[in-house]
Design a protein around this nucleic acid. Structure first.
Length: 935
RNA sequence: GGGUGUUUAGCUCAGAUGGGAGAGCAUCGGCCUUACAAGCCGGAGGUCGCAGGUUCGAUCCCUGCAACACCCACCA
């Protein structure tokens, strides 16, 4: 641990005077943690490592990040508390297309474009933008409490990282994974770059299916009719295909037809791909602009005629009059010409899948270009095998199916991009166009003995995901054999959403296994994707997004409206967004603090695919923080006199809460092991609020008061209050780092616990011997009595300050047992149930008018002189009788079934029998009472 | 066309190897009980999507169906 540069912020002194105010503690604590080096990787312990999915360097924090980071930070903080050597690697991504687009847009606002800058200068502009805005997301991450290792922060364009990318490319090339080739790729005519299959979004859109007649050569008047949704591509047709078994057309195979407008003669070919049922049964073949046609073309050796330029305008392969036309204008013109020529045979409405680029939204044009590709088959097998053998585990497991299904059908990956911002491809060309791949021009010259041959480096850059796929090891120093790499790779866990399993998870696995034969991570935890309360995707354009820090700090309505309606892609939506925002948040959004938001994220992280984010939940968990804060205040207020040396005599309540805590700790640890953040949060909440605060704290009050009145100290109670709270704070810390750190110091101090920070205190460990079923059962008995007294008070609307008398009636044995338990519980019953006194009646003694309940073998009564309403009691009894009768009938039916007796496990039968006995006795007594209440 | 997930209280969701259902929020009633009204106490609310099957017994396992969501896919 590095030297202390910072003092722990002091707010314990006036803690007792303050209400819970998250803003007063958060930033001071984070600054102290970071300056003190608590996030740094230590030297000892089993390595535990999570790599942050690198956010775009110029991006800002959105809800999805905050959610994901909360889960990662929880795992990291837990494992750090477990004494592991814990690394949460920080880093950012250069995000090629996204960042380049932003900078280009900024230039456009100044009426500039990148061409006027030139490559060198444009890239400088991007670096400048990165300098200006690159820090924002880091500050936001700090605000969320993320305990990242900032001292080894990485950027995918750092020199070391760039070197790793270079090395990876060269090695993959040497291994034969990377090749260059002219293939049909997805071309984005707006961005003027190739993109990968994954970056294409197919959406169903309305268009037409046109039918066009192609005259048959040497047979005047005869023609075949083809059906197409893209008539303009006919200008690149090099064949018409029919199914070889189609009786209507098979005789035409080998004949030639004339493509209208360009008047090119092309063959009729037979190919089984053609469906006889669809359209006209004849398919026009455009090998340069359709993936299927391309394959058919290859099978038949057809020429590939590219008719578009890089912006998808018609090029010089078409008649002069059409050249330069955009593809959609070309479509209209072609249809017009065909119509004039009388060759249009029809047009019908049709819904088809239109491919669009996920960044530009432009319709993607399949184009023949020279690109670099990664061969997927061998790498795919390595990755699939790693999952099949369990080396890499998906959590939840069913994501392995998704992964496998995608991998099965994977095509070679186009990794080159015609952009300026990114890692330049390390390939050089001589004048003949031969490509040489190497670490540098010098290396190539010497390796291939090129001396004075003029060489020119490839203009293209690598897709961003290529560099991201090296993330787990390039951040640790690869290709250098560093200590960090050896210690932390393979990393322990990856936490991410299912939307990037293909983009990133699968590719990291292939790269890591392909390049140095290691899996990148052992477990992949896939969380759901965040949606708004209505289940809609959160997005800027819909205007339903939330800035996590607005939930933390609060934001007034006007500011929120302004934020949501500024810089919209579609400004005309602004009024609608404004209306919706004013309706949903009439008061703006209150400040909730980081801990409440983090706890909410955890509580929502169930196993489903979507996570609906509901502001109400944050509200509830802010209340939880407040509850915790006040509980700590209470404990501190009542333990000022605590003497650690004083003898302790723990009572039932102490045994009970200790037993509950031990059980809970097991649950919490299991939840963390299984990535069940929702169960973790729920169980922590339940224990803190409904066990510790509602029952233990309340049970502690009478003994504290008694001790005070007698000038004593109630050492056992004080110790238990402090110890349980101290454990609870440690257990909560991974989820709620700030409030737990603030509260832990004064509490720990009372207990004489030394520790610089709760961050480095041990996560609670359950001691089996502390689990105490007898104490739990006695405590539950007490709770039942108290519950009855409270229900009676509430039912009769007794004055709040009033007390009741409890009368216990039962057999000698039952009464003796009750008296024994009462020695442990009477004080609590009196205090918690507002019970003035407890009296006893033998089985056969007459009782005054009473409301009663049967608890075990005991009849518990509250005398109701004056407030006894017979009709109310009768109704209560009747209800109880009906319920008991029904239950009994069910149990009896089961027991009477010989099959059940024979086949069900012995202890199940025994339990049912016991249930029957208890219900029998209960019913008899209820009926007896009912009879006595008869008018 | 193929695949995955979801369907439980008004809402959002838990229910580990099958023994007859829980929480939070909302709601209703009563309380400023000296940690907390961001609180306390009590209550009401569900044929567990539908139909079959396996089983002594199904919210849970199997089959089919329906609705919703998402992913993949070349029928022009």
């Amino acid at each position: 641990m590095s030297e202390r540069k910072s003092q722990r912020p002091e707010f314990d002194a006036n803690l007792l005077d303050q209400g819970f105010d998250p803003q007063a503690i958060e930033s001071a604590l984070y600054a102290w943690w970071e300056a003190s080096g608590f996030f740094d990787v230590g030297d000892e312990g089993e390595p535990y490592c999570i790599m942050i999915p690198p956010p775009n360097v110029t991006g800002t924090l959105h809800m999805g990040h905050a959610f994901e980071h909360t889960l990662m930070d929880t795992l990291i903080r837990f494992n750090r508390m477990e004494g592991k050597r814990t690394l949460w690697q920080m880093g950012t991504d250069h995000a090629g297309i996204a960042t380049q687009m932003i900078v280009e847009n900024q230039l456009a606002q100044r009426n500039l474009d990148k061409a006027s800058f030139g490559r060198e200068q444009f890239v400088q502009e991007v670096w400048k933008w990165r300098e200006e805005s690159g820090g924002e997301i880091c500050n936001q991450l700090r605000r969320m409490g993320s305990s990242l290792d900032w001292t080894n922060e990485c950027f995918t364009m750092d020199p070391d990282y760039a070197n790793a990318v270079l090395e990876a490319f060269v090695r993959c090339h040497e291994a034969g994974y990377i090749y260059r080739g002219q293939k049909l790729v997805n071309w984005d005519p707006v961005l003027c770059t190739a993109i990968s299959d994954l970056e294409v979004q197919n959406e169903e859109e309305s268009t037409y299916l046109w039918k066009i007649r192609y005259p048959i050569v040497d047979e005047p008047g005869a023609s075949v009719t083809v059906a197409t949704t893209r008539p303009e591509t006919m200008l690149g047709d090099t064949a018409v295909a029919v199914h070889p078994d189609d009786p209507r057309f098979s005789h035409l195979i080998g004949r030639r037809v004339r493509v209208p407008i360009i008047e090119r003669e092309v063959p009729v070919i037979g190919d089984a791909y053609v469906s006889m049922e669809f359209g006209s049964g004849c398919l026009k073949i455009t090998p340069a602009h359709d993936f299927n046609d391309n394959e058919i073309g290859k099978r038949h050796g057809l020429p590939e005629i590219n008719i578009f330029d890089e912006s998808a305008r018609l090029n010089d392969q078409v008649p002069d009059s059409l050249q330069g036309l955009d593809r959609f204008a070309a479509r209209d013109r072609v249809v017009e010409l065909l119509d004039q020529a009388g060759l249009l045979a029809g047009k019908e409405d049709r819904r088809v899948q239109i491919p669009r680029g996920d960044r530009s939204g432009a319709v993607i044009e399949p184009c023949l270009t020279n690109q670099w590709f990664m061969r997927m088959d061998a790498l795919r097998d390595l990755a699939v095998d790693a999952v099949a053998t369990g080396q890499v585990e998906f959590v939840p497991g069913h994501y392995a199916n998704l992964f496998n299904a995608w991998m099965r059908d994977i095509r070679d990956w186009c990794i080159s991009r015609q952009l300026w911002w990114g890692h330049r491809i390390p390939a050089w060309y001589d004048e003949a166009g031969n490509a040489y791949v190497g670490r540098s021009e010098a290396e190539i010259r010497s390796k291939y003995d090129l001396r004075d041959t003029p060489l020119k480096q490839d203009e293209d850059v690598l897709e961003t995901w290529f560099s991201s796929s090296l993330w787990t090891f390039a951040t640790l120093g690869w290709p250098t054999d560093t200590e960090r790499l050896n210690s932390f790779h393979p990393t322990t866990a990856l936490v991410t959403g299912h939307d990037i399993i293909f983009f990133w998870v699968a590719r990291m696995m292939m790269m890591s296994l392909g390049l140095f034969d290691q899996i990148p991570f052992r477990q992949v935890y896939i969380h759901g994707l965040l949606r708004d309360a209505q289940g809609q995707k959160m997005s800027k354009s819909l205007g339903n997004g939330l800035d996590p820090l607005d939930l933390v700090d609060g934001i007034d309505l006007e500011a929120l409206v302004a934020k949501r309606t500024s810089n919209l892609m579609q400004p005309r939506l602004a009024p609608k967004i404004e209306r919706a925002t004013r309706k949903e948040y009439p008061e703006g959004i209150a400040a909730h603090g980081v801990d409440a938001l983090r706890f909410t994220f955890a509580a929502l992280a169930s196993t489903g695919r979507d996570v609906r984010f509901d502001l109400e939940r944050v509200h509830g968990y802010r209340n939880f923080c407040n509850k915790l804060w006040n509980a700590a205040r209470f404990v501190l207020m009542n333990t000022g006199s605590f003497d650690r040396q004083a003898p302790r005599e723990p009572g039932l309540a102490e045994s009970w809460i200790a037993s509950r805590l031990a059980t809970r700790i097991k649950d919490w640890r299991r939840a963390l092991r299984e990535y069940r953040f929702d169960l973790l949060a729920e169980s922590l909440y339940e224990f803190a609020w409904h066990e510790y605060c509602d029952w233990y704290l309340e049970a502690a009050k009478p003994s504290l008061r008694e001790a005070k009145e007698q000038g004593g100290r109630a050492s056992a109670t004080q110790a238990c209050l402090l110890e349980t709270l101290e454990s609870l704070l440690r257990a909560l810390h991974p989820l709620m780092p700030f409030v737990t750190e603030a509260l832990w110091h004064p509490v720990a101090e009372r207990l004489g616990i030394e520790g610089e920070t709760i961050m480095l205190a041990a996560y609670p460990v359950a001691k089996d011997e502390t689990i105490n079923p007898a104490a739990e059962s006695d405590f539950d008995w007490m709770r039942a009595l108290v519950g009855f007294a409270r229900t009676m008070r509430s039912d009769r609307a007794l004055p709040p300050g009033s007390t009741v008398v409890l009368i216990l009636q039962g057999s000698g044995k039952a009464l003796a047992e009750a008296k024994a338990t009462l020695t442990l519980t009477e004080t609590m019953i009196r205090h918690l149930g507002r019970v003035a006194s407890i009296e006893f009646l033998a089985q056969d003694e007459p009782a005054p008018p009473c409301a009663f309940e049967l608890i075990g073998d005991l009849k518990v009564m509250v005398p109701l002189e004056g407030v006894m309403d017979l009709s109310v009691e009768r109704a209560r009894l009747d209800k109880a009788i009906v319920k008991t009768t029904n239950e009994l009938a069910r149990v009896a039916a089961k027991l009477e079934n010989p099959n059940f007796r024979d086949r069900a496990p012995e202890q199940v039968v025994a339990a049912e029998s016991e249930k029957q006995r208890a219900l029998d006795s209960r019913l008899a007594r209820l009926q007896e009472e009912r009879t006595s209440l008869q008018d």
